[in-house]
């Protein structure tokens, strides 16, 4: 069982991911609505795995990823991207993201991804 933090500026996406993960063995322990909050909550909760949206206000997911990797180089961050964000996904991979998932995704997809990292 892994402790998950869900980062997304859209409450809808956070709820969706949380609902999807309910059927898994994992627990969502924290949520954040932008990168800045995500970094703070990361320090606070030290989740095992983070799902990170890319486009967010205040601080985007790339910046947050980099800050989280600086806090913990072994952090496991899965980027949540959309078609059209290839360049940013690439940068995320270079910055240490463990992988990415493309919206729209299905329950099996995100659970499998997290199972693999957990």
């Amino acid at each position: 069982m892994a402790r998950i933090m869900v980062v997304d500026d859209a409450a809808f996406m956070r709820i969706t991911i949380k609902n999807m993960l309910k059927k898994s063995a994992h627990e969502v322990v924290a949520e954040a609505e932008n990168g800045k909050v995500a970094v703070e909550r990361y320090k606070q909760f030290l989740p095992d795995i983070v799902t990170m949206d890319i486009t967010m206000p205040e601080m985007d997911g790339l910046k947050a990823l980099k800050e989280i990797m600086a806090i913990n180089p072994k952090a496991k961050v899965i980027m949540v991207s959309a078609m059209g964000q290839e360049a940013m996904v690439r940068e995320a991979i270079l910055s240490g993201a463990k992988g990415f998932i493309v919206k729209p995704f299905k329950e099996e997809g995100i659970i499998a991804a997290i199972d693999k990292l957990a």
């Binding site: 859209a10 809808f12 996406m13 486009t55 967010m56 959309a82 919206k103 729209p104």
Partner: peptide, 15 residues
């Protein structure tokens, strides 16, 4: 940009 991006993501999730 951010708003339409978010709508896009959510709408795609909802199919």
């Amino acid at each position: 940009f951010r708003v339409v991006h978010t709508i896009k993501g959510a709408s795609a999730m909802m199919e």
